[in-house]
């Protein structure tokens, strides 16, 4: 599609055979081949090889070793804790994402840019520092630490700390997906719903939610993938108590450091599968959002030029 065929444009002077000429806005074939080759080589070396390695190393010693590593008691309790952290943090961040996106996308208010920057903040804070700040607040010497300990509530080196750290590192995802889409969609449909007598909840459920459902799903998928895979932040607050405060990524580290490489990769392959499922769903959802946006703009065009 990039070589523009110009049937009559080739200069056919007497004596010279008609030469296929290149479109003025495409590159020479060798440049194209070189660039595609470079891109594929880079992607293979830095993405495909690591991905394949995970599954290869996991299955190198056979299915028995693979299954044994996954059904082992510590691995199972790590799976349970990982699911628990995700089940708590994803809905919390979902509610926050919807609230923040509603305020930011549908209203003009002072301090909006500051709020947007604050939402991005966890992306630029190192996961290690994310864990550290909760240790500073809830740890033994922390601000709130003594109160929680007096009341026999353990936050750091316990499950609540893991959940908090997970909430911190995953909290921008849903908001980040919703804000640009809701901004692009504008407020006309919601205003129409209000004028037609819908109350706030009806407007949200019948107009806003159907408009953003795919982006919402996509945000939840990303949020969940990160929640289940977070390592640095959780590592700082977990205390690494086997069978109690180890999530899947932490379990991988421990097993790996005990030189049980096949077992480490077996557990890692579960998370790699989750990553692949995430990418697959992301691809599907993106197609949906694209066709939805196209549909929206078509409708706008029709509204503008009724034929």
């Amino acid at each position: 599609m990039n070589t523009v065929a110009l049937p009559n444009a080739a200069p056919t002077r007497a004596g010279t055979a008609p030469r296929r000429i290149r479109g003025a806005t495409t590159e020479a074939p060798w440049v194209r081949v070189l660039l595609i080759g470079l891109a594929l080589a880079f992607m293979t070396l830095f993405l495909f090889v690591p991905l394949v390695t995970v599954f290869y190393e996991a299955l190198k010693k056979g299915w028995d070793v693979y299954l044994a590593a996954i059904v082992e008691a510590d691995a199972l309790s790590a799976i349970k804790l990982t699911l628990l952290a995700a089940v708590i943090s994803v809905p919390l961040n979902l509610v926050f994402g919807i609230a923040a996106a509603w305020a930011i996308a549908k209203f003009e208010f002072h301090g909006k840019n500051l709020l947007l920057t604050l939402i991005d903040l966890p992306f630029s804070v190192s996961p290690v520092i994310a864990g550290l700040i909760y240790v500073l607040v809830f740890g033994l010497q922390g601000w709130a630490g003594s109160w929680f300990i007096d009341n026999d509530l353990k936050i750091i080196f316990a499950v609540p700390g893991i959940v908090l750290a997970t909430v911190f590192v995953t909290f921008p995802f849903v908001a980040r997906e919703l804000i640009p889409l809701m901004q692009a969609q504008g407020i006309e449909q919601e205003e129409a719903a209000r004028v037609l007598g819908a109350n706030g909840w009806q407007m949200f459920r019948r107009v806003t939610l159907p408009n953003v459902k795919w982006a919402l799903l996509y945000g939840v998928i990303l949020c969940n993938a990160r929640a289940m895979g977070e390592f640095g932040a959780v590592s700082v607050v977990s205390g690494h108590i086997r069978g109690q405060t180890n999530t899947l990524p932490l379990h991988i580290e421990i097993v790996y450091n005990e030189y049980q490489f096949a077992a480490a990769f077996a557990v890692a392959s579960l998370l790699a599968l989750l990553a692949l499922v995430t990418l697959g769903l992301k691809y599907l959802v993106e197609q949906r959002v694209k066709s939805q946006l196209r549909g929206d703009s078509d409708r706008h065009e029709q509204a503008k030029n009724p034929s």
Partner: peptide
């Protein structure tokens, strides 16, 4: 091309600990 396009996001989706041990194995 589509596969490559979808896989670009792998480092976002793959937990860092998994990437870490895979890169070490390589």
């Amino acid at each position: 091309k589509r596969l490559i396009d979808a896989l670009v996001d792998l480092p976002f989706a793959l937990p860092t600990a998994v990437a870490g041990i895979a890169l070490t194995a390589i």
